[in-house]
Each structure stands twice: as structure tokens, then as C-alpha cells.
Design a protein around this nucleic acid. Sequence first.
DNA 1: CGGTCATTTGATGATCATCAAAGTCCGTGG
DNA 2: CCACGGACTTTGATGATCATCAAATGACCG
Lengths: 214, 214
Amino acid sequence: MQVLALKENQDVVREGDRPSRSCLILSGFVCVYKITGEGKRQIVTFNIPGDIPDLQSLHLKVLDTSVGTITPCSVGFIPHEALHDICIRHPRIMSAFWRETLIDSAIFREWMTSMGRREAYGRIAHLLCEMLVRMKAVGLAEDLACNLPITQAEFGDALGLSTVHVNRILQELRANGLIELKGDRLNILDWDRLKEEGGFDPTYLHLEREREAS
Amino acid sequence: MQVLALKENQDVVREGDRPSRSCLILSGFVCVYKITGEGKRQIVTFNIPGDIPDLQSLHLKVLDTSVGTITPCSVGFIPHEALHDICIRHPRIMSAFWRETLIDSAIFREWMTSMGRREAYGRIAHLLCEMLVRMKAVGLAEDLACNLPITQAEFGDALGLSTVHVNRILQELRANGLIELKGDRLNILDWDRLKEEGGFDPTYLHLEREREAS
DNA sequence: CGGTCATTTGATGATCATCAAAGTCCGTGG
DNA sequence: CCACGGACTTTGATGATCATCAAATGACCG
């Protein structure tokens, strides 16, 4: 596995590429995004250490999204050949990889629900809940706080909102005593109300390790 | 495989279920959806014959979405046990199933982009393009026409719009000579402009069968 | 032929985008 | 050490897109 250090705001892979390897995030934040015909950006997910943002390229030859860094990152590249080998020889590991991509899918479904049917206030609350829970799952968060190096413009691109609107909603969330968010630091002051406002239910993240049937 | 005939507007499986089988759509239209805390519905995808809307339940024990019929349907239920058996014995088939779920994922990403960064007009145009291409891929469409038994309320729930707004945009699309849409019948009059307006690029559907590397 | 469901129309207002500019923070170089 | 520059955040003002409510019309079906 080749390991690269990348600066912030760099593309790891680009829509249209036909990569022969997938990238494992070792440290830092990345996002998966698309650019529309009119040049607008939609971030479809954030990825944190432990994630493989383009694992799908193992089976879908042409990338339909780009992956870009948000912070400086350390990224490991795993040749598809090696992944295929492992998968053929160890069906259980193949299942585990498959399962990871299914969880990504579940996150997409939840984001769609946010964008389609929650207004900005709940949408942001929901995303903050998700990020904290995911960061905790990989040991990168304390009980109610974590680093969250995401700019307001990036929040906007992820949630389908303008930067200005994100800014105003964040101020509301702060004014209502739900969060502190300054620089890279997120501090959740009222977890229950934040969950409530975002309609957040972590089931979709499928975090409890479940015994496989086979 | 057990086959059931279902009426329209019936749930096949429900969020929270822990199914021991997955459902293959043999005929009819279904949708995958979530209900938010405030009782709003978000349809995250439509499924047509040949699709397996809850294949993910093979690896994710708790369903995070419901599947409901849109029209009368014929649905086949395949026990997870049988699927696991096939997967263990035929890694290539396992890969093929995995690939199907990855394409679902790609569709989710595209829908997110629509909802976040396209306005209603383009959003509807895009969905119409997608549905025609997918219907053609399973032999259920002519060159520029197909059955599309989706109500305006369902369009709204899929696109994050109100029924009223969907209605008005559809009238615009008709007035501009892009489509005919009456009852269950969709007729595309100007494919190029419809594609253009929706920013539609079918790459994300990954329809060209690609040779596997292994 | 009434009844249900889907579509259509009109009117009003909320949410959110856009544009422009000012303010803050922080690293860099003179 | 301070000035400069750049990225990010904040503020204000205006208007477009879209939701909501209510009601009418049309289509289909037993």
C-alpha cells in the first residue's frame, strides 16, 4: 500500500477517472463531491479516518464523483488487484467490504431525507449529530465534542444551502444553547435537543457489530 | 423463491424490520422511502422490474427504509440463506450483487445532487431522463416513451417538492414542448433539451457492462 | 352516479438565495 | 513586531423559489 501525504483542498481522484486502486483515509478529512453543469458543488458525504471513499471503483470502472481533501491528509492507496485477491480468497472479508459500502448507502439515504424533507435548522442539527457519532465510532471524539474542520461553505455544499444561510442557522443553534462551534472545534451543549431538532436516529449508521448469519 | 402479488400502495417491508429475505421486483413499480419525525415522506429511489430494493438487508440487519408498492406488483422473496450460499460458492455472483448495490448508491448520489443543487425544473427533468434510461435498460421502454405510473405527489416526495409545485413545473415542461405526460404515459418530445435542462449524464447508471478485472 | 383519487388553480407568505461589503482570524514576510 | 494578504465568518438588504392552504375541476370505478 502506497501512502501519500496530501495538502488541504486537493483532489485525490476525479469524476471520470478509471482508477486501478482505492484510497483509505489514514488521517484527515475528505469529502466526496460532484460538480453540476452550472458549476455548483454538491458534497455527498464526508469521510474520516478508516473510510474508503472510492471503494465502489472496485466494481464501477468510471468514477461518478470526485474525492477531495478538506484538511491535510494521509491517504493509503490499495491496488484493486490486491482487493480482488483478498475478496476471492476470503469471502467474509469481501462481505465486510460490501457491508461498508452499504453503510455509505444508508448515509446517502439519510442525507437525501434531510435535504428533501428537513429545513435548514434540522438539517444542520442532523449533520452535526451524525459527524459526532461517526467520529466517536473511530475513537476521534470525546463524549460530546470533537474536531470538525468543516467550513461553512462546505456545510452549505453538503446540505444544499448557501454559505450565508448556514452562517445564520449556526448562530441560531448557538443562541439556543445547543452547540458551540468555533474554528475546528465542535462542542455539543444539549445533545437531546440537537437530536430532537435534527430528527436524528443513529440506526442508519449500523454501528453495533451484528453477527453474520452465515 | 416465494412469489406474491401485491396491490398498489402496500408496504413490502418496513423501516425497523429485520427481514430474513430480500425482495426481487418481477413486475410493477415500487419506491423506497423514509418517514421523518414530522411525518413527511422522502422517497429515496424508485425501483422497477429486475431491481432488489432491499438487497442491503443481507448485511445490514435492521432496515433503515421502507419499501412500498406504487402499482400492483409481483414480488419474489429470496431467503438470505440462499443468497449467502450462492455468494460463498460463487464469488463472481457475489461481486455482481455487490455491484448492483453500488449502482443504487450512485443513483442516491445523483439524487442528492439534484435535491441540493438543481432547482425544481431541472430536478424533474433529470428524474424523467433517469427513469426513461432505466426503463429502456430492462426493455420496458420504447425509444422516447415509457409507462411511468408515478403520481405528482410521489414525484414531490422523491424530489423534495410539494405536489402543487410539481404540478406547475410539469405544466412548464409541457408548455416548453419537452414532454407529454398524461396518466401513466410519458412521452419525451425533446430529449436533448430535457437532458440539458436536467444536467443529465447517464454515466452514473453504469449501464455498459464492463469486463471484470479478475 | 356518487365517491374517491389525482390534477389543477389561485392567493399568500416563509424559507432560503443572492449580492455586496465589512469584520475577524491567522500565518507570512518585511 | 507590525503590516499585509488571504480565507473564513458575519451582517444587511432584496427578491426568487417554493410551501401552504383552500377549493375547484377532472378522471376513473364500482
